[in-house]
């Protein structure tokens, strides 16, 4: 029974990682860059929901929508101001800029909202579903359900809409996509908007499970989700989903059966082993050499 409940907890944590990892993998797939500020967008999303609920007494749904709106605009703005001017620059310059944006957001949060930890109000009922001897909290069910819903919507969007086809085309060949009449800059903006909107959703799930809000809140989940994206094969949407879930399960199992202190080390050790065997991740596309 313990095993099952650990598995479900792992799926729940993994669902949050997966939602964040989708943002990393989509941006990488289309803009070919690692957006290390993605974790800090989660942090901004968490503050927005926190203030909406605590200070302005809005219902959770309104707070969430507001947070999605703010993060979406933030994501598009970051891309326009920080990354777009570097479209032709080396990937190292873009990477360093992304790290810079990350520090900028963390320090801006410290400046505006202080570095002291704020306690996120309890937003979902503490109840639990009893299944035989197994107790699954509603939060866990909502988290896993949200992840599946997000994934399903995203797959439908990517595979069955004109914009989704255009996004896939941009991820393969931006020049050829331009010849089709696709506005590549617009597609990149849309990608950042979707990734950042997902970060806002993740922030609520994260803060519901770990109810403290502080300026560096996004750093650790961000790096874990990035790991999940690489684990699953960066650039691949099903890969981010699978990588996120597996990472969550491995982390919870490592905590439960091996050592709480060593759990992060074990997670990264698994990543290293996977990358040694499959350098492109579990579902990553094999890199074809251009002739």
């Amino acid at each position: 029974m313990d095993f099952l409940s650990y598995l479900i907890n792992g799926l729940s944590l993994g669902s949050v990682y997966a939602i964040i990892a989708l943002g990393y993998t989509m941006v990488y797939g289309i803009a070919k860059m690692l957006n290390f500020a993605h974790g800090d967008v989660i942090m901004v999303g968490a503050y927005v929901v926190f203030f909406a609920i605590s200070s302005f007494h809005m219902p959770l749904a309104v707070g969430l929508l507001l947070s999605i709106a703010v993060c979406t605009v933030l994501g598009i703005t970051i891309e326009r101001l920080a990354y777009k001017p570097l479209r032709q620059a080396s990937s190292l310059s873009v990477l360093i800029t992304a790290i810079g944006v990350s520090y900028f957001l963390q320090n801006a949060a410290q400046l505006f909202w202080s570095s002291s930890t704020k306690v996120f109000p309890s937003v979902l009922s503490n109840g639990a579903l009893q299944l035989g001897g197994l107790s699954i909290s509603y939060l866990t069910l909502v988290t896993i359900g949200t992840c599946i819903l997000v994934m399903a919507c995203l797959m439908l969007f990517i595979n069955h809409t004109s914009t989704g086809r255009a996004m896939r085309a941009c991820s393969e060949d931006k020049g050829a996509a331009t010849l089709m009449g696709i506005n590549v800059n617009l597609i990149i903006s849309i990608t950042f908007a979707i990734g950042s909107g997902l970060a806002a959703i993740a922030s609520v799930l994260l803060c519901a499970a770990y109810p403290s809000v502080y300026p560096t809140l996004g750093a650790m989940p961000g790096i874990k989700a990035f790991t999940a994206a690489v684990f699953g094969g960066i650039g691949s949407i099903p890969g981010a989903f699978l990588g996120g879930l597996l990472l969550g399960i491995i982390e919870i199992f490592a905590k439960a059966y091996i050592s709480t202190q060593l759990s992060d080390a074990i997670v990264f050790a698994v990543l290293i082993i996977v990358l040694l065997i499959r350098p492109t991740g579990l579902l990553g596309r094999r890199i074809r050499e251009k002739v």
Partner: peptide, 13 residues
Amino acid sequence: AQVPEGRRVFAEQ
């Protein structure tokens, strides 16, 4: 419309 050198079809689609 242009048919580019090397065809450049979207291989995964």
